[in-house]
């Protein structure tokens, strides 16, 4: 369990990193925290011929740029906990990060790494899909913004092209008062989710004016539900119909069943976590 051979390139500028990735194409991978990629390499499930170390690049900002919160690809997970902008604008995000891994992993793992790895049970891909985030992908030929809902194509498969890397994720700032919550259930602390639910409710007074909901762990990519979101809009924080929303979401998803959990269980979990999550988010907003 040691990696196969590769060449190591330490990039000191983004342009240099992108030029290297362009040169290597499918054979190249950026290396950031290494918490997802290196285990895959040690198990020889990933065999990049070239690693481009991007840790020295200035991609670690958390700041408001325009109407979005910009989170650089190299922001380490542990920073989310104490960042005032995340706490202020994205309460579901803040709740989700409590479920990420263990302290040492949170200290080194990065936003860009987690999003690029695209584990279907991981928290951050779900958080991105939940918030309609844009994944900023850069390559030698330019930069593009990929909506999170179009970024995650399958388990461990993203819309990134060879030579492209994630430089940031942009979370559109909410236009009015919002509340949010994130809950998941794993076998142990820090485990990947059997199922997780995130919800964001925009509201005007007591009335829910917008709703987004996402489920992780149940399918190969994070799943949104237009039906649940439509159901919630127009309802009240005092009576958001959480139970019914859980029923709708659960009925709409055909979850995977495997040795970790049955499909029926995942369905049941989606129903209950959806109920709890909506009730929790609505409760926080009306408190």
């Amino acid at each position: 369990m040691r990696p196969s051979a590769f060449d190591y390139h330490k990039a000191s500028t983004l342009d240099q990193a992108l030029a290297l990735l362009a040169e290597f194409g499918d054979d190249g991978r950026p290396l950031a925290g290494g918490q997802s990629l290196v285990p895959m390499m040690n198990l020889r499930l990933a065999r990049p011929r070239h690693l481009v170390d991007i840790n020295a690049l200035p991609l670690d900002a958390i700041e408001i740029r325009g109407d979005a919160l910009h989170i650089g690809a190299l922001v380490r997970h542990e920073r989310y906990f104490t960042d005032p902008l995340i706490a202020e604008h994205f309460p579901a995000f803040l709740e989700a990060v409590h479920w990420i891994g263990h302290p040492t992993i949170r200290r080194h793992g990065t936003m860009g790494g987690s999003v690029s790895h695209a584990d279907p049970t991981a928290e951050l891909p779900s958080v991105c899909v939940l918030h309609d985030a844009l994944i900023v992908a850069a390559s030698a030929s330019g930069e593009r913004r990929i909506p999170a809902t179009e970024f995650f194509l399958n388990a461990y498969v993203t819309a990134l092209e060879p030579g492209e890397m994630v430089t940031a994720v942009e979370f559109p700032l909410p236009s009015g008062p919002t509340s949010g919550a994130f809950m998941e259930l794993g076998e142990r602390v820090g485990d990947f989710a059997i199922a997780g639910i995130g919800v964001v409710l925009g509201h005007d007074g007591n009335t829910i004016t917008s709703a987004r909901i996402v489920c992780s762990g149940a399918r190969l990519v994070p799943v949104r539900s237009a039906d649940v979101e439509a159901f919630l809009v127009g309802r009240t924080l005092a009576d958001p119909g959480a139970q019914e929303a859980g029923r709708i979401f659960s009925a709409a998803i055909d979850p995977v069943g495997d040795h970790a959990a049955s499909a029926a269980y995942r369905k049941g979990l989606i129903k209950e976590l959806t109920r709890r999550c909506i009730a929790h988010a609505a409760g926080k907003a009306s408190a």
């Binding site: 290494g34 918490q35 290196v38 040690n42 690693l51 302290p103 040492t104 200290r107 080194h108």
Partner: peptide, 9 residues
């Protein structure tokens, strides 16, 4: 800072 030396080159 603590870090896993099996995930570090």
């Amino acid at each position: 800072t603590p870090r896993l030396s099996c995930l570090t080159f």
